[in-house]
């Protein structure tokens, strides 16, 4: 089975985000594979280990995207495709078109992705890719079983779960509970260096949406300490809630 995994390179979830000239400053920030995509890579490798085949990692991004691809190769994927994208603000539509173009050429039996990216959290790209390629699609999958030409997907739905079957090839997005991604092994890291990464130019496509503004969450306000005897502090607290926090009291 040939499995393609789409990975996005995101800022390290531990990184302290700083805005500079209205954009996120990449200065000194570590880049990682989007953690949800890492689950997709792990799932693909497990399928390959069980039934053979090939795992191709596809990543659309700038020069440093090869780091994310190498990490997936170190985990056990076989080869990578780096779609060179120079504009970091490319929107989900354009990104999906670029990925779909390459995925079409790859002709995978299964396309796995994370269900959301840890940076922009828009959850659009895999669904758009499925739509462009005209493939069945299952989202937020927590259990994946492959049968003859089909995949049985257990997925999270509000308040429960849903089991659905899709014909392969299909685009399936992974939830973190699907598996526990492995750490790259020492041997895997050394082998990753020798595994091929094809560089391809992104297909020319205009974004349909553009980011107007980025802002950090408001800084945490300092707490208020109320001191005194209980009867006074109770009164002070109530007054503070009413007058400063402006809590509405429904009669």
């Amino acid at each position: 089975m040939k499995i393609a995994v789409c990975v996005k390179q995101t800022f390290d979830t531990e990184a302290k985000i700083v805005l500079k000239d209205g954009k996120i400053s990449g200065d000194g920030i570590n880049l990682i594979i989007n953690p949800y995509d890492e689950v997709a890579v792990e799932e693909a490798i497990r399928i390959k280990e069980k039934q053979g085949g090939e795992v191709v990692v596809v990543c659309a991004g700038g020069d440093r995207a090869t780091e994310a691809i190498r990490q997936a190769l170190a985990m056990g994927a076989d080869r990578g495709v780096h779609i060179k994208v120079n504009d970091p603000d490319v929107d989900e539509y354009a990104r999906a078109v670029m990925l779909a173009e390459v995925l079409k050429e790859q002709g995978a039996d299964l396309i796995l992705c994370g269900h959301v990216a840890a940076d922009d959290g828009s959850s659009q790209v895999p669904t758009r890719v499925a739509e462009i390629l005209g493939l069945p699609h299952a989202n937020v999958v927590t259990k994946l079983e492959l049968g003859d030409g089909k995949a049985v997907c257990t997925r999270e739905v509000d308040g429960g779960m849903e089991v659905m079957e899709v014909a392969l090839p299909a685009v399936i997005t992974c939830q973190v509970s699907l598996n526990e991604p492995r750490y790259p092994s020492m041997k895997g890291i050394m082998q990753a260096k020798k595994k091929p990464i094809a560089n391809v130019d992104a297909v020319a496509v205009e974004s349909k949406a553009k980011i107007i503004e980025l802002a950090l969450p408001a800084a945490k306000q300092a707490g208020k300490k109320i001191e005194g005897e209980p009867e006074d502090t109770g009164k002070q607290l109530a007054e503070w809630l009413l007058n400063e926090v402006k809590v509405e009291v429904k009669q």
Partner: peptide
């Protein structure tokens, strides 16, 4: 056979 890339990958893995 090593390079900055392998060193970084090793350290990133242990860090993780």
């Amino acid at each position: 056979d090593h390079s900055r890339e392998t060193f970084d990958m090793i350290i990133d893995t242990i860090w993780k």
